[in-house]
């Protein structure tokens, strides 16, 4: 049975947790038919240093591509690289559905002429097919989808936090791989603008989210939400659209139908009414605490 390929995302010099989750999912899929889990690791010079961590999490082989043009996210060069690797008889390509993973996965699928499962929360093999759970209709319905591949591999992106990154230590074989084509002649040029708080825990990765709404009354009162998040020590800060519309918080903090979809262990909703579009982003949280003066608020 063919091997499973994943992509390791390095951002700001760090290996992303979503990539370890995708690797663990690939490991499980590979183990279910006695195959290997392989990883494409790329970035600027030095990116290969993450190969050991990938071995810790179950990578049998790590293909390392280091190139100046890959130091920044380079969707065209990267998707060409991953697709080219995937042509070597893989059963599936798994990508963590981070903001960049959501961009990369469909590019790779299209280059391979493959079908794609997007943002799945479970994944298993059924013969040649992949069967996955995917929340649809703003999370109000769970679809079980079946991907029956043609000749090439199947592609799936995995919802952050839905799969657990687990240790499965081994010494990964590391192979250097050249970029595909001329990585520096791309049409889409990307420059990352790191925000001041890029080191903070991301919404997708935080076990606790403290979220604020219009009930906070003013931007400066968001400090209460930030202080509470800091007191937890493992919390990220979220917001409603009412708040991002007013510019109290950036749009990237917005949770909901047209923002981020999250499922932390604990979601603390401060001054949030619980509009249907907000619930769409956080209804899968395990435990929800609402601080609200209106006992009838839909939250």
């Amino acid at each position: 049975m063919p091997n499973v390929l994943t992509y390791a995302e390095v951002r700001g010099g760090d290996l992303r947790k979503v990539s370890l989750e995708a690797l663990s999912a690939a490991r499980a899929l590979a183990d279910s038919h006695g195959a290997e889990a392989h990883v494409v690791l790329s970035g600027g010079p030095g990116a290969g240093a993450h190969a050991a961590a990938l071995g810790e999490h179950g990578a049998d082989v790590v293909f390392v591509t280091e190139h100046e043009a890959l130091a920044q996210y380079n969707p065209e060069a990267l998707s060409a690289l991953v697709a080219e690797r995937a042509r070597n008889g893989y059963a599936a390509v798994l990508v963590g559905a981070s903001a960049r993973g959501k961009d990369l996965a469909p590019r790779v699928a299209a280059k391979l002429g493959a079908a794609i499962l997007s943002d799945v929360t479970t994944l298993k093999r059924d013969g040649d097919a992949l069967v996955a759970t995917h929340p649809v209709y703003t999370g109000k319905v769970l679809a079980t989808l079946r991907l029956t591949p043609g000749n090439g591999p199947a592609v799936a992106s995995l919802r952050p936090g839905a799969f657990t990154a687990t240790q499965a230590p081994r010494t990964a074989r590391v192979e250097a791989a050249p970029p595909v084509g001329d990585a520096s002649t791309v049409r889409v040029q990307v420059k990352e603008t790191t925000s001041a708080d890029s080191r903070k825990l991301d919404l997708a990765e935080a076990p606790v989210i403290v979220s604020g709404g219009r009930g906070l009354k003013a931007a400066e009162n968001f400090k209460l939400v930030e202080d509470l998040a800091a007191a937890f020590g493992n919390a990220a800060v979220g917001a409603t659209r009412a708040v991002t519309d007013d510019g109290w918080r950036p749009h990237s903090d917005q949770i909901g139908q047209t923002g981020r979809q999250v499922s932390p262990e604990l979601y603390v909703a401060v001054g949030i009414s619980g509009a249907i579009q907000h619930l769409a982003g956080m209804r899968a949280s395990r435990c929800i605490v609402a601080i609200n003066k209106d006992a009838e608020a839909p939250i």
Binding site: S98, V188, Q189, S198, R241, H251
Partner: peptide, 24 residues
């Protein structure tokens, strides 16, 4: 501009092009 987790990226590209639209 594309939103990332805890950041953003500025992207330039030539036309013709395909874009998908986020909120904002």
């Amino acid at each position: 501009r594309r939103e990332l987790e805890g950041g953003a990226e500025e992207v330039t590209f030539p036309l013709p092009a395909v874009v998908t639209i986020d909120e904002g």
